[in-house]
């Protein structure tokens, strides 16, 4: 009976980590560590981007669990929390029941929507400085950041695909930046404002995870994440292009 509970704990840990955007090797590693605390003949965990699998063979039975992961988003706090729980459990600092319970019930204090949006604004502004912008670029980038947040709120309400979401948002920022420049500050550097405002759309986690998964030989996860980041990058480029073109096409 205990073995089944261990399997469930491992599955739950794997599911949360996969759904929060962790690298596949990390998911498998965490699951395997939990599974190996069981008194079993063999234990194996397998994780890809879209699902986790685990099997545990004891003296008289073989138990296998499959969990499809339909919805994914990026939440590094959840990954860190699961990591912490499984580390404590594997070092025998907490019992299996406690670990299972904590996995089921932990709530990560995520940042509120307002803080999240403020962070997007801050990211745009700080990128403007990072890329060598001055006061004028900073002001324009901040206003453009507000436009970006507005665009993101709008598309998130419409629930479109990631490709369309990025395409729309980057069209808005490219058009908005050109508009703001010609009406407010004619001698601001347009490049700086546009590059700074497209930074929140860049798929940083997908890129990093793709690299690390590929290095580890998880070509399925690495490949799909690489494709994901390429698709997003292309949609940013297309959107910026469309925005600039629209601005020029205006009389």
């Amino acid at each position: 009976m205990d073995e089944r509970r261990i399997l469930e704990t491992a599955m739950l840990a794997g599911e949360i980590m996969s759904a929060s955007g962790a690298e596949s090797y990390r998911v498998e590693d965490t699951m395997n560590r939990i599974l190996h605390t069981a008194d079993a003949k063999s234990a194996e965990a397998f994780a890809v981007v879209t699902g986790v699998f685990a099997t545990l063979e004891t003296e008289n039975e073989v138990v296998t669990r499959v969990k499809r992961i339909a919805h994914r988003d990026i939440n590094l706090a959840k990954i860190a929390e699961v990591n912490e729980i499984s580390r404590l459990y594997c070092q025998k600092q907490i019992s299996l029941e406690t670990a299972y319970d904590r996995l089921q019930h932990f709530t990560v204090r995520s940042y509120s929507k307002a803080i999240h949006n403020l962070a997007i604004l801050l990211l745009v502004l700080s990128f403007s400085f990072l890329l060598g912008g001055g006061v004028q670029e900073g002001v324009l980038a901040s206003i453009n950041g507000v436009l970006l947040i507005g665009a993101l709120v709008l598309v998130d309400r419409a629930q479109v695909t990631p490709f369309l979401r990025t395409l729309f948002a980057s069209t808005v920022i490219a058009f908005g930046a050109s508009f703001l420049k010609s009406f407010m500050m004619k001698d601001a550097v347009l490049d700086n404002v546009i590059i700074a405002s497209m930074m929140p759309l860049v798929p940083g986690t997908a890129i990093t995870t793709a690299i690390r998964d590929t290095l580890n030989g998880d070509y399925m996860s690495g490949g799909s994440r690489a494709l994901e980041s390429i698709v997003i990058a292309v949609s940013i480029a297309l959107g910026v292009g469309a925005g600039l073109w629209l601005w020029r096409a205006l009389p």
Partner: peptide, 25 residues
């Protein structure tokens, strides 16, 4: 200095967007 300060703020803002725990900011 302004550029490095910008990068410093990028670290904070980026972590918040990715929902990183507060202690790592």
């Amino acid at each position: 200095i302004l550029q490095v300060l910008g990068a410093f703020l990028v670290g904070i803002a980026g972590s918040i967007i990715l929902n990183a725990p507060k202690k790592v900011l």
